Simulated assay, not measured.
Amino acid sequence: MRVFLAVARAESLTGAAPVLRMDPATLARRIGRLERTLGASLFVKSPQGYALTDLGERMRDRAADAETQFNRAIDEGQGASEALTGQIRIGAPDGAANFILPKVCVAIQAANPKLEVQILALPRVVNLSRREADMAVMVSQPVAGRLSVQKITDYQLHLATRRDAPPIRNRDDLRGRPIVGYIPDMIFDKELDYLGDLAAGGVNLASNSVAVQLQMLRHGGVGVVHDFVMPSAPELHQVLRDVFSLRRSFYLVRHSSDRHSDRLTRFSTALMQGMQAEVARLEQRARLTGSTVI
């Protein structure tokens, strides 16, 4: 079941191999043996990867339910006073994944040495129903699915550009400046559509990655930057704060069937507290180090 679920989620042998700590050839043999036992194909195999058949999709859902029940039994056997163990995977947009979660997760793992924490950074919404992750940080609340949602914290965003760029005192000064932002047709969440009418003339330098956008801004242009990112880019400063200021929120989303998991609840509590503290710390540091220009 573990092998089948890992390959189904990764959609390839090479993607599942590191998760299971097995080589792809071993995984291929295990999948082949399972299919021979069933007398039916679970995957359509191609150079692009392993895609589930209709039967495979039904089996994935049943196997994921069985996995949930098994993990719940393990949780019940782990005393609340004991350190966390096992593997926990968090899905997150790459802004949080790059600039917030690493410090937070390192601290949680240091307090729980037998715990393995994985951060899944994706330019799309993480599919918890397919168990791509145990929980996900999202920038808007999902409206469908058997999910539980908790607000983590608010965060702020402002326009930023290089400190040595020509000054920007009003919107007219933005004319002729290359605009940095998301690839318009790859914005996977409406809360990430930051630019509005500022991008009316088009986005000159675009990426689906916050980290790549930051690198672009380091070399020129104007774009929206999270306040908690500013300490990582001392060559940038914020502009037009009085006319352009955004507030967004992070939410922690879990599958509703995990609400009785003591292990995941303890981890999610530590994760939320850590994210709240880290966002506050970085935003305060941005203000104190002069990243802002009022």
Rank of each mutant, 00 (worst) to 15 (best):
A233K: 04
R36D: 14
A280C: 07
E132Y: 03
D75L: 06
Y155C: 00
R177S: 01
F4L: 10
G223V: 07
R175P: 00
Q109W: 05
L13A: 15
G145K: 07
L288G: 03
A73Y: 13
P113L: 09
L282T: 01
E11F: 05
I294H: 13
V222Q: 02
P102M: 11
S268N: 11
P113R: 08
L157Q: 07
A66H: 07
T53D: 11
S249R: 10
D185K: 04
H260M: 08
L217S: 06
R72C: 04
A92I: 03
G95W: 00
L52K: 12
A144L: 09
Q276N: 08
L38V: 09
R259I: 14
L147G: 09
L240N: 04
L214R: 14
A111C: 00
D189C: 07
E132L: 06
V222C: 10
A111H: 02
N208T: 07
I168N: 04
A233R: 06
Q78T: 15
R131L: 06
A206K: 10
N112F: 10
R169V: 05
A96I: 03
G77R: 08
K103L: 05
T53I: 12
E11W: 03
D75G: 15
A165M: 12
A206Q: 13
I108E: 07
L157V: 05
R62G: 02
V203Y: 09
L115F: 01
T68Y: 07
T292Y: 10
L55Q: 11
F4A: 09
K190S: 15
D258T: 04
V224S: 00
I108D: 05
V126P: 00
F250P: 07
A200E: 13
R58S: 13
S291E: 09
D54R: 09
N208V: 03
T26E: 09
R60P: 07
L42K: 09
V149A: 01
L271R: 08
Q109C: 13
A66G: 05
R169P: 00
F228K: 03
D193C: 06
P113I: 07
F228N: 03
L236K: 11
P93N: 03
R29E: 15
A110C: 03
I179Y: 07
R146T: 13
K151Y: 01
Q78L: 15
H158E: 04
S129C: 05
G49R: 07
R169T: 12
V224F: 02
R36Q: 14
K103N: 08
Q284I: 02
G223S: 02
P178L: 14
S81L: 12
